[in-house]
Simulated scan of single mutants.
Amino acid sequence: MDYQFKLLRQSRQNLLRFTEQFTLEELNEVPEGFNNNIIWHMGHILVTQQLLCYKNAGVPCRISDEIINQFRKGTKPEALVPEEEVTFIRKRLTQTPSLLEEDFRNGLFGEYNEISTSFGNTISNIEEAVVFNNIHEGMHFGYLLALRRALTKTV
């Protein structure tokens, strides 16, 4: 699992570095042909990791229900995300990989409520959840690349 946690931390660093290039307006812009924006993807990545790894293991999430309900699967941007919330999301994206690894090493995750994903696989334990989460984050990074391309066409 060491490698999976290393990948998660690196993925988050790449995500945060990539998103630094955008203004608050650009983070919130939903380009034509898209359902979401960059900040939604950032929040969604944070929320999904918490739901996959904590909630499905019966462990309290380390973010609020308000944030979860704002960025969970099936949602879309309803309002502009203010700078303070962007800062909060960035901070939690930085912190949660290490917290997850620490909680994993401390044996916080026991039973896991098996789930089927829209990706077509089943997650049966925390180890599989961490691996799938890394795949999920990589997929969303691809969406961010597409959003960047769409944003640069509109500027």
Rank of each mutant, 00 (worst) to 15 (best):
T96F: 08
H44P: 00
K73M: 00
K6P: 00
I67V: 15
Q13G: 00
T154G: 10
N56C: 11
N113D: 06
A57L: 03
V86S: 02
E26T: 08
T19N: 04
I135V: 13
F71T: 07
L144A: 01
Q21P: 06
F141C: 07
Q49E: 07
E32T: 12
F109Q: 02
L99G: 01
F5G: 08
I89L: 13
K153N: 14
L145C: 14
Q70P: 02
K73H: 03
I39D: 05
P82F: 09
G107C: 12
E101Q: 14
P60C: 12
Y143A: 11
N69P: 04
P97S: 06
C61A: 15
M139F: 12
L147G: 04
A79L: 02
L144S: 08
R90A: 10
R90D: 09
I115E: 09
E26R: 09
F71A: 09
L52G: 04
E84M: 02
Y112R: 06
F5W: 01
M42I: 13
I126Y: 04
N14Q: 06
Q95E: 14
S64N: 10
E32F: 06
V86F: 04
A146V: 13
Q70A: 10
N69T: 11
C61M: 15
E101I: 10
N125Q: 06
Q70K: 11
N134Y: 09
L7S: 03
Q13M: 03
A79C: 05
R72G: 05
V130I: 15
L144D: 02
V59I: 15
V81T: 15
G33K: 01
E20N: 09
N36H: 09
Q95G: 07
K91Q: 13
I38T: 09
M42E: 03
I115A: 03
G74F: 06
I68L: 07
D103C: 02
L52A: 00
S64Q: 09
L93K: 05
